[in-house]
Design a protein around this nucleic acid. Structure first.
Lengths: 198, 198
DNA sequence: CGTCTATTTGAATGTACTCAAAAGCGGTGG
DNA sequence: CCACCGCTTTTGAGTACATTCAAATAGACG
């Protein structure tokens, strides 16, 4: 039943960026659709159009790009409780997605489709600000990722991952961490071996 | 004299994302400050607080991060005519910048300080949307950069750079392109040698 | 013209990859 | 409850990509 759904986390997300009244909160919540996803199911498949912005209430997903040329996946981000995910370009332009988004655990999600989001912006323009500030935050994170990719060795990137996302390494298989760091699973194994010896 | 300044490019930038009236345009333009920068001058130095969002009317700058540990610069982006630049995090949070932004050519710029930007948002909230859409675009570009860093070899990254930013390689010294690609200048030289033989 | 910086070239080295095989681990069915 | 299967992780040998360091050459600028 809808009344059982807990919206506190998503409202906390909004209120982290803007002040909203109870009325505005109610309207916002009324636009959300609840959805579950089992481990290994896809939230989005490449070449489909991304129809929703999705908030993660519970669980963990990976956003990744498949390089068919070399038969390799490259993970852009792991996304967990409290964050939004989508293929931004596909959602905004209604073009086929270049990303896959796949559940790595059983997930509970809240979704907002394009027309609902536009209705939200038209009804309460302050939500544009909220959306901008989220993009601002993501921009900063991506920039930091780019710097790290340019400047760190495999070992340093792994240690940085452990400290930046504590606890996540227990939820995620090792070869997927390698796909996030941009190294081979074999090499990550060797890095860990070396760290264990120290 | 202020009347000589050409605002057509910056207005084109705004109107690329939102519709604005002449009145709104006039107000927006009244908030901008014109500034010139000579080649090799800094728009922003690391550890200073970034006070402005800066629009580039003419010229080219580099946003870069200095790794003092290894005495190396890592270039995040080259920014040219028609784009905005700042250290987003420093500007938003008024914290010391981690980036340098430096002119690679003589530049003509238009700047917007924090309070002017907030005044703009308060007066005409639709500018929040414009700002969001710019971040959306930058997010997409950064994502694409991350994918390329994860999946391409040095040679492939160089060829991609040439096709993504045609004409830019003539404006920028080669070792700076190397700093953007995340390879050494010597290795870029060898890549070019190899490409020339083909 | 001289100085400073950028680019090229080469040899030696290191970091990370490929391929192959073995070992470990988790879930499923008998 | 154990045996088996598939997938993940480890290990090792050989290789490729990219770096370091040093020196030579080329270009840019006052």
């Amino acid at each position: 039943m809808k009344s059982e759904i807990d919206h506190s986390l998503v409202l906390k997300n909004v209120r982290n960026y803007i002040n909203i009244t109870d009325e505005e909160a109610d309207f916002f919540v009324s636009l959300l659709t609840y959805r579950r996803l089992k481990k290994k199911q896809f939230l989005l498949q490449a070449y489909d159009v991304c129809k929703y912005e999705t908030f993660i209430v519970k669980g963990c997903l990976k956003e990744y790009f498949t390089d068919y040329e070399n038969d390799k996946d490259h993970i852009i981000r792991f996304v967990t409780e409290g964050t939004w995910t989508s293929d931004v370009e596909s959602f905004a332009k209604e073009t086929p997605s270049s990303l896959n988004i796949e559940a790595m655990e059983d997930c509970e999600l809240l979704q907002l489709d394009y027309s609902s989001l536009e209705l939200l912006f038209q009804t309460y323009p302050k939500f544009e600000r909220w959306c901008r500030l989220i993009f601002e935050k993501n921009y900063i994170e991506f920039q930091s990722r780019i710097i790290k990719n340019l400047s760190l060795s495999g070992k340093e990137k792994y240690l940085d991952f452990l400290s930046e996302y504590p606890g996540l390494s227990n939820r995620i298989p090792q070869h997927q961490i390698a796909a996030y760091l941009g190294i081979t699973p074999e090499f990550l194994s060797k890095i860990r071996q070396q760290l264990a010896r120290e």
